[in-house]
Write a protein that binds this DNA or RNA. Structure first.
Lengths: 352, 352
DNA sequence: CTGTTAGCGCTTTCAC
DNA sequence: GTGAAAGCGCTAACAG
């Protein structure tokens, strides 16, 4: 294994100079630089990143924790993260917690022991005190988990005295509340008044926000909010399937279902069809995420498109800032999402 | 940041002893061990893995290169890899080449510069001379890319004098040829004689092997092999869709389609349905991989199940061996796959 | 069983 | 613009 000292000897310079050349230090004379570069080439020198990382106290790894990589949402986000990471010579380490949120904290060890320089947390679990304590001061960016603290504000500028969320960490998010309101608007426009909601788990921030959007959307449109039309699942096709069966047996007869994600919708569609219901004639359905599959299910799924790749890009760019110490004050990025109209609601307007 | 010397001082021992305790060296007296552990705990000491890795010349990272993480096959395989990797304190670095196979070699740099200790290559591209040269001597395990050399053997024990594949690297694979023969057997049993094949790209080993299985299956069952019934795509739902449109316009009227993977099948199903064909009444279809979705498409997809998670487990275990220098001679693991019968072929036998 | 000590290969002051 | 030299924090001979 040829090392820096070999290159230095070959080029007739010191290791310091070799190091400078490799770091693109402009102070090095062009001629010296060429000598060094020639030596590097000649000797087939490859810097030992283990030594470099040790010396620089950086692993050049960043950790991305996802609830489960099986949900196609995350691969796309990760692609976005990778594209930025690679530009900056970071490698992405994948932390798949298989929806087992206790293991999330274990991953943070990677930062403490320097195996990772920063972390992007994409699990939208409600943050516990323990969690907040654990990530305090770490180079972390939160995705979807937009809120880590609720405070009652009764100041004058907050006339309604309602809860205000304070993000004490940098975050990337979409506006879940507004997105779901759009869905409800659309369904109501098509004449639906009784809309079921197949939600995610209760302790997910995304679930909570989408529920809020669902409720506000109904109220805004003058529909009644009926708690028994809300079902809780776990984001999977299986959950969608089971929930739909439950709904069918319940005697509630909604004319439309909004599902918390596309996979839940796909599962629901299967159950509905098996029970002889036609979509959208007998019941309309709307998903969320606009995964690749949404276009290919039968019927093609009306859904909310969120900018998955960009989500990753923004998260990584934010993390880069945090790791550089640029973000003392927290930054909270909210990305735009929009409704994609396909055929699962029977709308005549075609999208995509 | 408290370091090993602090712990040593606190416990009244040397750093060597601390190091031994941390490495679980049985030679350390129980009492000394307890003293050290107490100091570790007291001082909240976390070993600096950067220093350790540097010293041990190992990054504790392993690289997994996949064609694209967007194909749900890979996340499951990666889960399997992770489960073994984690047990041995390895982190998984994700190398997604977005089906751009030239970038594969670039990832190998991570090994040369010690940023990764080993690599699992899951891209089933035909191996070039350059590729073989590049991975020679590296701690590498190949998945799906089962063959790196073809040699004409005319020795006595090979009576037929046919090509024999020689794997000069450790590999994990399934028997693609046999799997597809099963599919053809099944279709023929159901009365199909004219079976189209929506394959992957021509330069993929998986495509080549599945094509072989297709051909052999037809011949074995006394069906004629018609090259114009073979279509080449790129594993995506979109490809399946486009290929099905092509097929419909071709005037070929197969009674069944075998697709190289489930996603291609899903795309094809959409196109077929849009054109008024009923599945399986008008045309049968069989996929490959048994991804989660296969069960939820309409109609549920008959497909070949391959042990994805186990695939990852085996690949990682093999890599562990290679990294330990245990595998001088190459090992080639072939996992079992089997047909899952659902409804897309109209068989009365229900599976799963 | 435990301590002493010599680095691992690189970067970065500090001199010149 | 370049070189000398001091470590980064840990592990592994080697010695005792």
């Amino acid at each position: 294994m040829t090392k820096m000292i070999d290159v230095a000897n070959f080029a007739g310079v010191s290791t310091a100079t070799v190091s400078r050349v490799l770091a693109n230090d402009p102070k090095v004379k062009e001629k010296t630089k060429q000598k060094v570069l020639k030596a590097v080439d000649e000797l087939n020198y490859i810097p030992n990143s283990l030594a470099r990382n040790f010396r620089k106290r950086s692993s050049k790894n960043i950790l991305v924790v996802v609830p489960t990589i099986a949900n196609p949402l995350y691969p796309t986000i990760i692609s976005g993260i990778q594209s930025v990471a690679r530009e900056h010579n970071y490698q992405v380490i994948l932390g798949d917690i298989s929806r087992n949120f206790e293991t999330e904290l274990a991953y943070l060890e990677l930062i403490r022991d320097k195996a990772a320089d920063g972390v992007i947390l994409l699990a939208a679990e409600l943050p516990t005190e323990e969690f907040i304590e654990a990530i305090k001061g770490l180079p972390v960016v939160l995705g979807y988990r937009n809120t880590v603290k609720e405070e009652n504000l009764h100041s004058t500028e907050d006339k309604r005295g309602e809860n205000k969320r304070i993000n004490i960490f940098p975050t990337v998010n979409i506006n879940n509340v507004k997105s779901v309101e759009c869905v409800i608007d659309h369904l109501v426009q098509l004449g639906h008044k009784k809309i079921a909601f197949f939600n995610g788990p209760k302790n997910s921030i995304v679930s909570i926000d989408r529920l809020k959007g669902y409720k506000q959307g109904l109220v805004k449109n003058g529909c009644s909010f009926e708690p028994e039309l809300i079902y809780y699942g776990d984001w999977t096709m299986n959950a969608g399937y089971e929930l739909a069966l439950e709904l069918l047996q319940s005697g509630n007869d909604p004319t439309a279902i909004f599902t918390v994600n596309d996979e839940t919708a796909v599962g629901a569609i299967k159950a509905l069809k098996e029970n002889g219901l036609r979509i959208p004639e007998d019941i309309a359905i709307v998903g969320f995420d606009n995964i690749e599959l949404a276009k290919f299910v039968d019927p093609p799924l009306t859904t909310i498109a969120q900018p998955k790749f960009e989500f990753g890009v923004h998260a990584m760019e934010l993390l880069l800032k945090v790791m550089n110490g640029e973000t003392i004050s927290q930054e909270n990025i909210v990305l735009e999402s929009h409704l994609i109209i396909r055929e699962s609601c029977g709308s005549k307007i075609k999208g995509d």
